[in-house]
Design a protein around this nucleic acid. Sequence first.
DNA 1: AGAAGATAGCTTTTT
DNA 2: GCTATCTTCT
Length: 637
Amino acid sequence: MTNSNLKILKDLNPSQKQAVLNLSGPSLIIAGAGAGKTKTLTYKVINLIANKIEPSSIVVLTFTNKAALEMKDRIQKLLKTKNLPFIGTFHGFALKILRVEAKNLGYKKNFSIFDEGESITLVKKAINNLNLANFRNSANSVYKKISFYKNKGVDNENYLPASLKDIYLEYEKLLLEHNAFDFDNLILKTLEILKKYPEILKKYQKKYSYFLIDEFQDTNSPQYQLIKLLASKNKNITVVGDDWQSIYGFRSADYRILLNFQKDWPQAKIFFLEQNYRSTQNILDASYSVISKNIFRTDKKLFTTNGKGELIKVLKFKDEREEALWIKEQIIKKLKSGKSLNDFAILFRTNVQSRVFEDLLISEKIPYQLIGAFKFYQRKEIQDIVSYLRYIYNPNDKISLERIINIPKRKIGESTIKILKDNDWNFEVLKNKPVFKQLENFNFLIRKLESASRELPMSSFLTFIIDSLNYKNYLDITTEEGLERWQNIKELIGIAYNFDRFSPKEGFENFLESISLLQEADNFDKNANKLTLMTLHSAKGLEFPIIFIPGVEESLIPHEKSLYNQENLEEERRLFYVGMTRAKQELYLTYAEERFLNGEYRHNEPSRFLDEIDENLKENFDITEVELDYEQKIEYF
DNA sequence: AGAAGATAGCTTTTT
DNA sequence: GCTATCTTCT
């Protein structure tokens, strides 16, 4: 063991240290909320490298790109080396293999990755091809169902409900025709290749000998199958997770994979990380008294040296407006006593709940950030330009072609597009029509852009496209909307600058890859002096000194769609647990007697989860009888 | 090609 | 009851 390595170990508690020192063989690290999961994983990677394990043979898998970036940062700082392991998402890792091996399944190497929107368009096409009139308006839900089944990891389409099977098969056929993968197929097709070609499997088993997986409780079956296969030779697989925090069952994540880990890997060593560094003892005890009502779980008891802290505050309001007003007042009061806006987060079960807070915060001019609201890459103007890139890169991508052929307007109308669609986009069929001139011009433009793609660095190439299209003019920046869209385009160019260090060809490929996989610009900025609003789901992995959870009511949390099913109910409880354990110092749980929801006033009972908190850990307040004085002018901002 | 009319869906969300 | 999306009308 090296000296630098010893120095690092001093930062760890005994159980973390044991987990980090255990280098080879299967290992399961069950870690509670705030117990230093990611830190332990990061240090284990560093320890592996310190023990002369070749970085390129190590694969670290995280739940999001953002988590991957953060870990990369941490490792780079501690190691001061450029030679890093693969650190990324399952999808990113699968893509790395597919770039080399997709040809085995009949894909060309310039394949595309279809995002959700493009995939839905393709499902629509499948439905039209099959003439299934009663599915005409349900491409969205059909796509979601297909995706759910794919993620279950059932590799036989006969398991699909009969009504979906035909659409599924047609959709898969279309994907191949478009030379494209949807998100799910990145994983599934990689798995298929490794199963089908033993020599390819061997190659990657040799190449990658250490696997470490974060947030293992939210892994789904195909993802696990993929890593299980690759790790089966060397058996160096480390997983870190907390079954109590598994909250993505609705998209086929399965925490039982974590609970069954020892069955699959009988030699596995188990480590429990139970010391919490985040919250007060009261918050830990209160959240434990809730989560302990779940039957399907491991048992562990978290502790902290942080002291008892304040009691959990449970408050009752007349309606959601009063609830929001009170929370806002409370925040302002605390700001005056020295807290700052980024000490607070308001966490809710459903996105619609953010509305009442947004209205209030806007009128009071309180700066806030709403996480997961508008998605940069789903904006029309971004998709327009990205579709040009995709079509230039992969001419089989007719979904992108259809999107751009008349943007900006070039007099290629609906009827023309219909004819082209019916003829596999063969422009020649319109040879004798006046519109053919327009089509030829379009082809000429694409050829011009394509040759530019081979010569220019990424940001210049992008600027060249935008100029050639006269896109700024098309957006009409004299309108407020147009100006905002133009600013988004400039942001896209800004992102492209990061790819200028590559050759034109590589830069283009990497840029496309990164905007396909990095859907959400990570818009949460913990340093911004803003109040944070987000769903309980997006709060996973984060922490704040003071947490408000509004709407702690039956039919919100637990959500009404999960009330009558034990499995779903337990997931709701875990979700609530995740919310509670985000708090470092203070936790406010609020509910209203009446709430405007789905167009009607509804009366909800207080959530059963409130009853599950031990009486001696909470204080109840009834604010329905108190006259609130909201008129006082706030001069704070 | 854009506006008006019709209809579905309405929990959570990353890739 | 609101909104996003698709269809049909002008």
